[in-house]
């Protein structure tokens, strides 16, 4: 009798406790979202300054990219691309000592060098490229050089982390075979480790190049060269049309870069 009633009350597959917990979770999420929404959107925004709906609409209309400005951004876009390339290449070179320290199976002194390598990776990965760029701009002055260094500093972490993980997962067999021929540590690394991780390494380098194009595009906003500088300038003089022409250029460049990078990586993996 009671079973029938329970079945009639609701879905017998779900017990009350689970449902209650679930609804409590939803309620908490809803309350949190409402509280944050009120705090950020209602109190955090200067509604008076924004003006009427017509004003906002007028600004949005001004954002249509002006095509006349497009030829002027080809040079800066090329600069952005070159910065991304050299930043990535530098990151690839700098990541070699870092992953050597941070791979637990080849690091020279586990107690000392492993935490050092991991620490470098964490700092590199969790600091935004803009912050690196600010430091380098303050030290070296304006221009693409601090931008390249910022991109390199930011990418080293990813390159070293993925490569260190690949090294930790390698097959020990070839290394033992090379060891048996009497090879020293450098030869063991070159002929036992490198061939196993090289495809991963190159694939990740191309992936980073693709990401770095996106990153290089904004570095100019803090004076580190590339298209970002032109974008920030045009925004400052309220030439929104020109600014969104810069954005359009960046979007096109990034889309092309992503397409090419995907193609090359697929080729690399399949054959």
């Amino acid at each position: 009798m009671s079973r029938v009633i329970v079945a009639a009350e609701g879905n017998p597959l779900r017990d009350r406790g689970t449902l209650l917990k679930r609804y409590a979770f939803y309620a908490v999420v809803l309350c949190a979202v409402t509280a944050m929404g009120v705090h950020l959107i209602v109190f955090g925004t200067d509604w008076g300054r924004m003006g009427t709906f017509a004003d906002v609409f007028g600004i949005i209309m001004n954002l249509a990219p002006s095509l006349a400005f497009m030829p002027k951004i080809i040079g800066p876009l090329l600069q952005t691309l070159l910065m991304a390339f050299w930043g990535t290449l530098l990151a690839v070179l700098l990541s070699i000592p870092v992953f050597y320290l941070a791979a637990s199976n080849i690091t020279p002194y586990m107690m000392l060098t492993y935490p050092l390598g991991r620490g470098l990776i964490v700092v590199s990965r969790s600091t935004h490229e803009i912050i690196f760029a600010l430091i380098y701009v303050a030290a070296l002055g304006l221009g693409p050089l601090p931008g390249i260094l910022a991109l390199a500093s930011r990418s080293v972490g990813f390159m070293a982390k993925t490569t260190a993980e690949a090294i930790e997962n390698i097959d020990r067999g070839p290394i033992e075979a090379i060891e048996a021929t009497g090879a020293g540590p450098i030869k063991r690394f070159l002929f036992g480790v490198v061939p196993q991780v090289l495809p991963v390494f190159i694939g990740n380098a191309i992936f980073q190049l693709d990401i770095n194009i996106r990153r290089a595009a904004i570095l100019g906003m803090v004076g580190a060269g590339g298209i970002g500088l032109y974008f920030a300038e045009q925004m400052k003089i309220y030439e929104y049309g020109n600014a969104s022409a810069c954005v359009l250029g960046v979007v096109l460049l990034v889309i092309i870069g992503e397409f090419v990078s995907n193609r090359v990586r697929t080729k690399l993996i399949s054959g």
């Binding site: 954002l63 904004i218 970002g228 600014a243 969104s244 954005v247 979007v251 889309i255």
Partner: peptide, 19 residues
Amino acid sequence: SLPSLMAAMLLVAVFGFGP
């Protein structure tokens, strides 16, 4: 493909400063 900092700058132009 839109870098978030550029998107933020454009949105600040439209909606004013603030979170």
